[in-house]
Design a protein around this nucleic acid. Structure first.
Length: 566
DNA sequence: CTGGGGACGGGGCCC
DNA sequence: GGGGCCCCGTCCCCA
């Protein structure tokens, strides 16, 4: 659906932004495969005799050191040629291996005893996010971190099994849940090649699953938090690097290219103001596309100016935000990241029981009711219980017999609006359009023509859940139908409905044994608004109804035709 | 074709 | 402003 919107909603300059969330994942996966097979490797790192074939471009992307070394840094370096072997004895082999693994998989897997080596290696190579993550785990700050730090505390060991660079995010987060242990977090957004099949439920982090890399995923990854990443001003100084001037301008905004991908989901960025040009060049195409699309018009500005797009509905002063992909205005603070996941396909919230993934936490929560058996919405008339409130709402219409939505063409009534829509999308009703609405169910429309025309559905005023009959506002029984479908119960039927519902309403769960009879009787009293057979069983037979419609057709004459002609 | 269940996305309200 | 929770409309699937 959104893809259609994307395709049909060209942004400014006619550019269309179509995200391919899998691309970066596949790209990294292929690169990693090439590294392991030695394919296209143009750089070999060595450490104490161990050799690690790799790609210069990848290393330049992930490491500030190599970026400088190969001249990938703007205005720096010596052109980037000639380096085929780079001896890195200053980095322990295990640490170098871990860092390479990180570079190609966005996942840092290190033994608990090797944390400090990795930290040192990350510092040497200018892999800021890893260094920050290691410091975070070691309980050090960039300022206090020193060579005198003691051995890792025992509780850190559990966190060291795998490290995701996103852990650094939490450091700068202003979120109130500081007490939450989210230092090491699996991140779906990274589309780690280690999880080459994002579609596989098992490959995704689950809020309730511990299976994902044995990470303490107490909280599903929240893409919103990645934005914080760009706000970080960490002090990871790659001081041992021989290149001069890798100072402040690069430390703070250092971007690991693979981690920029979350930007795809969170363009508004805007925090991007903090991105330097150097940083921007690290963005992949997707991110660039998103950023560029959001650049011409500030989302915030748009929101301020397009608040009118809400159609004048009553709203709180929540700044609307425009989706840079589909241009849709998203109302509500903090709702844009949620919306963006519909474009990226990201479903960070996974059911630990069945593996089904969801884009939203609240949906997962509701889903979990299926496994817990919790059905909080209980029908007051019968033992039926439901997962969703709207299920109960629909269900209650069964008790009441209310079919608030009637086809204006064939006057078939439905309990659910979507069923009416489905009905109207078909052609079945066209052949019945000569049928007249039931007399006494007509509503007056104040003489107005059908507002919605074909699109209009007419909810019945009947409120199933209460035993009170609520007339539709502006509608009075006995009114003359002018265009709109007649949908109101009238006269004695109305009273009977009320009585039936009162009886049903008084049926408590403790007296359910007889509810069925009550229900049946109540439904009979309601007149059984079934279309086919249209027989309430009391006053009207189908034949009689047809006769009545025929009579009414003669009485109303062309007026009906004019209204049905739509 | 219809009834019913479930999932999904958007918006409102509140913290 | 971000996020949780809830409600709603809509769509899809299945019997």
């Amino acid at each position: 659906m959104y893809l259609q919107q994307v395709a049909m909603s060209p942004g400014e300059d006619g550019l269309i932004g179509i995200p391919f969330p899998e691309h970066s994942n596949e790209l990294l996966s292929h690169l990693n495969h090439q590294r392991r097979t030695g394919l296209l490797c143009d750089l070999t790192l060595t450490s104490h005799g161990a050799r690690y074939p790799t790609h210069r471009s990848v290393m330049a992307a992930v490491s500030l050191y190599f970026r400088r070394l190969f001249g990938a840094e703007e205005g720096g370096g010596e052109g980037g040629g000639g380096f085929s072997v780079c001896q890195l004895d200053c980095v322990a082999p295990d640490a170098l291996d871990a860092l390479l693994e990180f570079a190609y998989t966005a996942t840092l897997t290190i033994p608990s005893s090797g944390m400090r080596d990795v930290l040192r290696g990350a510092q040497l190579l200018g892999i800021q996010c890893v260094a920050d993550a290691c410091r975070d785990i070691l309980g050090e700050t960039a300022e206090t971190e020193g060579e005198t730090a003691e051995e890792q505390r025992p509780q850190q060991a559990a966190k060291q099994k795998a490290v995701k660079s996103e852990s650094v995010v939490e450091k700068g987060s202003r979120r109130k849940d500081k007490n939450k242990v989210k230092k090491i977090r699996p991140h779906y957004n990274n589309f780690s090649p280690l999880n080459p099949l994002p579609a596989s439920p098992a490959s995704h982090p689950s809020p309730a699953s511990e299976s994902y890399r044995s990470l303490p995923s107490t909280q599903p990854p929240s893409p919103e938090k990645e934005e914080v990443h760009f706000k970080l001003k960490q002090n990871g100084d790659p001081r041992p690097i021989k290149e001069p001037g890798i100072g402040a301008t690069l430390n703070g905004g250092f971007l690991h290219w693979s981690q920029d991908r979350p930007l795809i989901a969170h363009p508004p960025p805007i925090q991007n103001n903090k991105l330097s040009e150097d940083d921007m060049e690290g963005l992949n195409n997707d991110a660039m596309m998103m950023v560029s699309s959001s650049v011409p018009v500030s989302v915030a500005d748009r929101g301020a100016t397009t608040s009118v797009a809400g159609g004048g509905r009553k709203r709180k002063s929540q700044t609307p935000q425009q989706c840079p992909v589909c241009q849709k205005i998203i109302h509500g603070a903090g709702k844009l990241p949620r919306h963006m996941r519909t474009h990226t396909g990201e479903k960070p919230f996974q059911c630990s029981a069945c593996g089904v993934r969801f884009t939203r936490n609240d949906k997962l929560k509701i889903h979990m009711r299926k496994h817990t058996g919790e059905r909080p919405y209980t029908c007051s008339h019968c033992p039926a219980r439901f997962l969703h409130s709207y299920d109960l709402k629909n269900h209650l219409s069964l008790h009441s017999g209310a079919r608030p939505f009637e086809c204006p063409l064939c006057h078939k009534a439905f309990a659910r609006e979507d069923h009416l829509q489905r009905h109207r999308k078909g052609h079945s009703c066209l052949e019945q359009r000569t049928r007249r609405p039931r007399r006494g169910l007509e509503l007056a429309e104040d003489g107005r023509p059908d507002e919605g025309g074909m699109e209009r559905s007419s909810p019945l005023p009947f409120q199933a859940h209460s035993s009170v009959f609520h007339p539709h506002p502006g509608l009075e029984s006995g009114g003359v139908s002018v265009g709109g479908p007649p949908l109101i119960f009238a006269g004695d039927i109305k009273k009977e409905q009320s009585l039936a519902l009162q009886a049903l309403a008084h049926l408590g769960p403790q007296r359910l044994t007889g509810y069925h009879d009550f229900l049946l009787r109540g439904l009979e009293l309601l007149g059984g608004r079934k279309t086919e057979g249209e027989d309430p069983g009391r006053t009207r037979s189908p034949a009689l109804q047809r006769d009545r419609w025929a009579d009414e057709a003669e009485e109303d004459g062309g007026e009906e035709e004019a209204n049905d002609g739509e």
